[in-house]
Design a binder for these strands. Structure first.
Length: 447
RNA sequence: GGCGCGAUGGCAGAGUGGCUAUGCAGCGGAUUGCAACUCCGUGUAGACCAGUUCGAUUCUGGUUCGUGCCUCCA
């Protein structure tokens, strides 16, 4: 059996994964703040950690994958103010859309998907504990984490507290004892969402929810904590500080989570996809355009998860092309059953999720007509879950408008009027369809 | 400025101290309709400069360039 290795951001080394309890592996990944649609950069995180949980499940008898929904945040408040929709309407709506879109990308729902707003009590309890232990203090209605009280601060991001201060863009509010201190709890005005607490009506800071929810659902320490690379600092660094201090592990940044896994960004023309740059593509839009979820998923896995992934038509095209090939083979052998996951696939996955290598192995499986291996590989990768005939056909209601053209082309072929036949092919290509002549006559496929 | 990451053939993208990555595109061929699909064949790439070595794309150092975090961010 292949042994899983993962690059641990905390040690900056690829390590053989060795669970705290091999009978129950625990994984947490920071999920979305639900105030709008997920773009494919957000989707990459969901796909990567879904894949990791699937691979873990092939290696260990029990895996609990937790990924949260952040449903209290200043951005949500701002979105509500802008649209006039109630906050819970917005968060419910976009939670559902997120789950639907990720399901379309082949992501199983996490075993537990905790919401921040249903864990306020746990957050207050953790904050209270931090105050009691001298790691947090109250000031002007805020509760702040005192960074100098945690000697191991900076272990994950590799920056010292002095460097962070040198960044100079940190807001130094009057109630902060140290410029690096960050908010655990902040006061809410009457028109903002808030909960009663020992420090007055307020709401949690951004970082505390993950500490509280991970501890509640997984216990400390747990095995793997993941998220996008941009969360390393300050979010994950602060989670470590809160959680380690909560359990009194002042010098051990691994007392929260043992292995930290960070996925790289999706880029567009070499630049990070981000909302502020406006260069984002929504997963929802791509699905609406008729690009299949599995195509998006495979395209997102076409680069190694820690490398940047440049989103392009060509990446989509390559993923589509491979899936078409695989489904065509599956259709030709409809009664084949899934076998064991081919060892070379498992080996590549176990090597820090080397999905580009996996994809090359998929091509080789197609060439070898190894349907049983492909099906098994598809199950662990979260692809090849559709009916091959459905995959290869196109929606007839969409294409019946072209039936007359196809009939005309059949006649043109019979008349050996190749110029006309090819003109029709070109015309349909303009509509996004490819004509494939089969024994049953001409059929259309999406380009 | 501080701290990271990266640089592979037209494009995407791996492994590897010496032995074909893989795919997309292109080109040649078979089949076909002079198409499409399919099949066969086809690519001396490794930013630059040193060093280690019998031998480096792979290890080490430096340079250049790109990019990310340091502020909300997957």
């Amino acid at each position: 059996m292949s042994q899983l290795s993962l690059f641990n951001s905390l040690t900056r080394e690829k390590e053989v994964f060795s669970p705290i309890d091999p009978s129950h592996v625990k994984l947490y990944a920071c999920g979305p703040t639900v105030y709008n649609y997920a773009h494919i950069g957000n989707a990459r995180m969901a796909v990567v950690f879904d894949l990791l949980s699937r691979v873990l499940k092939t290696q260990f008898p029990k895996v609990t994958y937790v990924s949260n929904i952040t449903d209290v945040d200043d951005k949500i408040i701002a979105a509500s103010a802008e649209t006039g929709e109630a906050i819970d309407v917005i968060t419910c709506k976009f939670t559902d859309i997120y789950n639907d879109d990720m399901a379309a990308l082949g992501c199983a729902k996490p075993d537990i998907q905790p919401r921040a707003t249903t864990h306020i009590g746990e957050m207050i309890a953790l904050i209270t504990r931090l105050i009691e232990k001298g790691h947090a203090y109250e000031g002007e209605g805020h509760v702040l984490f005192n960074v100098p009280s945690f000697p191991a601060y900076g272990a994950l991001s590799g920056r010292s507290r002095d460097e962070q201060i040198a960044g100079a863009r940190v807001e130094v509010a009057s109630y902060k004892k140290d410029p690096a201190d960050f908010v655990l709890w902040k006061p809410s005005s009457d028109d903002e969402p808030g909960w009663d607490s020992p420090w007055g009506r307020g709401r949690p800071g951004w970082h505390i929810e993950c500490s509280a929810m991970a501890e509640k659902h997984l216990g400390l320490p747990f095995d793997i904590h993941g998220g996008g690379a941009d969360l390393k600092f300050p979010h994950h660094e602060n989670e470590i500080a809160q959680s380690c201090c909560g359990v009194g592990a002042l010098d051990d940044a691994s007392a929260f989570a043992k292995v930290w896994v960070h996925n790289g960004f999706v880029t567009v023309e070499g630049e990070k996809m981000s909302k502020s740059l406006g260069n984002f593509t929504l997963a929802h839009e791509l699905l609406d355009e008729g690009i299949k979820g599995e195509v998006i998923r495979l395209a997102l896995l076409s680069a190694h998860y820690r490398q940047p992934l440049n989103w392009s038509e060509q990446a989509v095209h390559q993923a589509q092309s491979l899936l078409n090939k695989m489904y065509a083979l599956l259709e030709s052998m409809p009664h084949a059953e899934a076998g064991d996951v081919p060892p070379q696939i498992l080996e590549a996955l176990c090597d820090d999720l080397n999905t580009p290598k996996v994809i090359s192995e998929l091509h080789l499986l197609v060439a070898a007509k190894d349907v049983a291996g492909l099906k098994a590989a598809g199950d662990v990768l979260g692809i090849l879950q559709e009916d091959p005939a459905d995959w290869l056909s196109v929606d007839e209601t969409e294409t019946e408008q072209f039936d007359a053209l196809l009939a005309e082309r059949d006649q043109a072929k019979a008349d050996k009027d190749w110029a006309r036949a090819d003109a029709i092919r070109d015309e349909l290509a303009g509509h996004g369809y490819k004509i494939v002549d089969t024994q049953d006559g001409a059929q259309l496929q999406k380009l």
